[in-house]
Amino acid sequence: MTRSIRSAISAALATMLTAGLAVVPAEPARAAGFDGAWTVLIITQAGNCDQGYSFPVKIAGGRVTSSGTANITGTVGRGGAVTVRVSQGGSYASGSGRLGAASGFGVWSGKGSSGTCRGRWEATRS
């Protein structure tokens, strides 16, 4: 799997924060308590993706973004519920989870050139 595909999948994983991929309604305007820089660790549990990858993300006004090359769209709700989608080229990943005041966790799944992968993610406020 190329680095750009791994990065896209990893980025998607990093922003996914719950024990499942259920879509959680989010209210970005009320999620300002989560704004700021975060570091996300992506852990692959199944599939042919990198076993671990860490990268920075930013939350502003309840919207999740990254300064990397992948397209990241996501939201954080007022209670910390997170949903994210990451794509780059033909690769993509989706994730969900929950953020607390200083850390968070969740699950992700995605598809790249070498097949599908899934796992969990952990986030810490930078």
Rank of each mutant, 00 (worst) to 15 (best):
P56L: 05
T69S: 10
A70M: 04
L17I: 10
L13E: 08
A19Y: 10
N71F: 03
Q45V: 05
R118I: 00
G119D: 08
S94A: 09
A102H: 08
N48S: 08
T73R: 10
V40A: 15
E27A: 13
I42D: 14
C117V: 05
T39R: 15
A60D: 10
G90F: 03
G90S: 12
P25Y: 08
I43F: 02
A46P: 00
C117T: 04
A46K: 07
T15Q: 05
I5P: 00
G61R: 03
W108H: 05
S67Q: 11
R125K: 14
G110F: 05
I72Y: 01
F55D: 09
T44R: 04
A11Q: 11
G36K: 02
V82N: 04
Y53C: 06
R63H: 12
S126A: 13
T124G: 09
A60K: 11
G47F: 00
W108E: 00
C49H: 09
S126H: 06
K58A: 12
W108P: 00
T44M: 02
A37R: 10
A11T: 15
A70E: 12
T73F: 03
S103G: 02
N48K: 02
A31I: 07
E122L: 12
T83M: 10
G68I: 03
A123N: 01
K58G: 05
V40T: 12
G36E: 01
D35W: 05
G112I: 01
G106V: 00
A32Q: 13
R6W: 09
A11W: 09
A19R: 14
G74Q: 01
E122K: 06
F34Y: 15
G52N: 11
K58N: 11
Y53W: 12
G79R: 10
V64P: 01
T65K: 08
D50K: 07
I43G: 07
G95H: 01
I42C: 13
K58Q: 12
W121E: 08
S91Y: 00
T39P: 00
G95V: 01
T75W: 02
A37M: 03
T39Y: 07
A12Y: 09
G90H: 07
S103I: 00
G112H: 03
I59A: 02
